[in-house]
Every structure is written in structure tokens, then in C-alpha cells.
Simulated scan of single mutants.
Amino acid sequence: MSPLAIVLFDIDGIVRDVSRSYRRALQETVAHFTQGYHPSQRDIDGLKAEGAWNNDWHASEELIYRYFETQGQDRAQVQLEYEDIVAFFQSKYRGANWNGYIQDEALLVSSDYFQQFSRAGMAWGFVSGATRASASYVLEGRLGLESPLLIAMEDAPGKPDPAGVLQATQRLDPMGHSPTIYVGDTVADMQTVIHARNQDGDRPWFGLGVIPPHVAAADSPAYGDRLFQGGANRVLNQTVDVTPALISEVTG
């Protein structure tokens, strides 16, 4: 029997607060390769609002290039190796034996949170641009979830390509057309839903945007507007506001 709905969650900004981990590593990576430019949270949000920079390694590279462009240099003039960016970023974020900034991630939900969807007859899983190791570290190592469905960086192209959510949906509802809801915190997440709808029009698709913890209260309305413009059906202030009752309301 098909589930009443499929609820797919992003991880960064939804399950864990990455403002002091991924984002801190991004800031320090950019500062290292520019020898001083330290992008603000607003700078990073502005880049991600474009919808094309879900991967923080790529986002770091882009901010580095844009910095040098403001200094009058063409990208072709900048001596930059992507592999060096990734290595430096990971040395800060993951560290040695997981002792990097990943240790500073606060959890935004508990394992019990997901059981309410199971009790309501809804299937759930995770689609994230994080590496499988990083995602599993938080889902299994810290939350204690037992082998949850996870589509990670290694499993599908980066968002807003919908391949990941399409793959997860097919695994959770192979024979049916239950509505799928994707819960994310970026424009790329919401655009992923739009692209999935275009590729699988037989299934209802919905995007729920969540304001991530790093966004200041004064900036929340503008951030929410960007999520709506990106395609969100609803915008919530925190992940726990997404409940089976809300899912039923949104899907009709």
C-alpha cells in the first residue's frame, strides 16, 4: 500500500544548524584563498539565493573568483585548483577523525520527531548535498536513526537537479503516486521541487521552505520571500513546524 505522503528532508539547516560548521568552513576557505576576504552570512545567503550554489565547495570557489573579479582580475588569471579548495574546506569542517567544526553542529530535531510521520502513515527520508559520511554521522551517529533512506552527494547530481528527490520518491513509493513534500532551507531546494514536478507530473509535488537558524529575525521576512519566489508552497520558522497535520493541509 502506498503511503499517504512522502516527506523528504534536506539535512543542513533542517536537521542540523551548520552556521558554525559548514558556513564557518566556507568563510575560512574563502579567506584563505583570497588572503583576507571573509564573506558574511548575508554574502553567502545572497549567493545561495541565486539557486545554483547548493554545494559549499562550489560556493567557496565562486566567492573566491568573484572576489578577485572585484580586484580587476579575470577568472583565467586566478591560479586556483578546485581540489585544493575541497581539501582545505574539509580540513576545517571534518578535521581529523571528525574533530573539526562538525562538532559544533546543534541538532534541530530529535529522532522522535520523525516517528510522528510513520505513525501517520507517511514515508520519510533524506535528500542532501552533504557527503554520505557527513550525513550518516548526524543521522545515525547523533540522532540514532537506523539506516534511514538517504540520498547524499555521491548518489545524485546536486540540487536543483531533481534526480535525488525523484530517486528517493521511487524507492519509498515505487508503485503509487503519493504526494511528495520536500523540506529545505534554500532557493535551490524549492527549485528542485519545481524541476521534479516538471519531470514527474503524475505525482503531486510540494516544497516547504524553512528559515534556517543563522538568519536574523530582522532578515527572516526577506529570506522567506526568496523561498516563496523560488517555489515554496509554505514557509515555516523552524523544522518542527512541519507536522503530519501540516502535510495533510498542504496536500489537500
Rank of each mutant, 00 (worst) to 15 (best):
I211P: 02
H214T: 15
D202Y: 04
G176S: 14
H195Q: 15
G144M: 14
I194Q: 15
D173S: 06
A196Q: 13
M153V: 00
D219I: 08
V193K: 02
V183I: 13
S178Y: 01
Q229G: 14
E140F: 02
T131L: 02
Q167I: 03
Y182W: 09
G164Y: 04
I181R: 03
V165R: 00
G224H: 11
P213C: 14
P174W: 00
M175A: 12
W205A: 04
D189V: 03
V193I: 15
D155L: 03
L145H: 05
G184W: 01
L172G: 05
R197M: 13
A130G: 05
Q191W: 01
D155S: 06
G207V: 14
G230H: 04
A120G: 10
L208Y: 05
R197T: 12
M122F: 09
H177F: 02
M190K: 07
F126H: 02
E154F: 03
D161Y: 07
P221F: 06
Q229P: 11
V127W: 02
G209S: 10
F206T: 13
S147H: 14
P179I: 03
A163T: 08
A217H: 10
E140H: 06
K159F: 02
D185A: 08
G158C: 02
D189M: 06
F228Q: 10
M190L: 12
Y223S: 06
P179H: 03
L143D: 15
L166H: 12
T192L: 15
I194W: 06
P213R: 11
Q167M: 14
Y223N: 08
S178R: 05
G141T: 10
Y182F: 14
H195R: 13
G231L: 10
E154A: 04
M153H: 09
D202E: 14
D161M: 11
D219Y: 09
L208N: 05
T192V: 15
G224Y: 07
R132V: 01
A188K: 15
G158L: 01
S128Q: 00
S178A: 13
P212M: 09
A196N: 14
V187H: 04
P204G: 12
G164T: 05
M190G: 08
G231E: 10
D219T: 13
G207P: 13
T169H: 00
R142D: 06
A152D: 00
P157R: 04
L208F: 07
D202K: 07
A130P: 00
D202V: 08
S147C: 09
Y182K: 12
A196D: 06
G164K: 10
L227T: 12
G129Y: 01
G125T: 01
G158S: 07
G209E: 06
G158R: 01
L208D: 04
S147M: 09
T131M: 04
A217F: 06
A135D: 01
L166W: 07
M122V: 11
E146C: 06
V183L: 12
A217N: 10
E140W: 00
V138Y: 02
A217S: 08
D155Y: 00
L166Y: 07
F206N: 07
V193G: 02
A163P: 05
V193C: 10
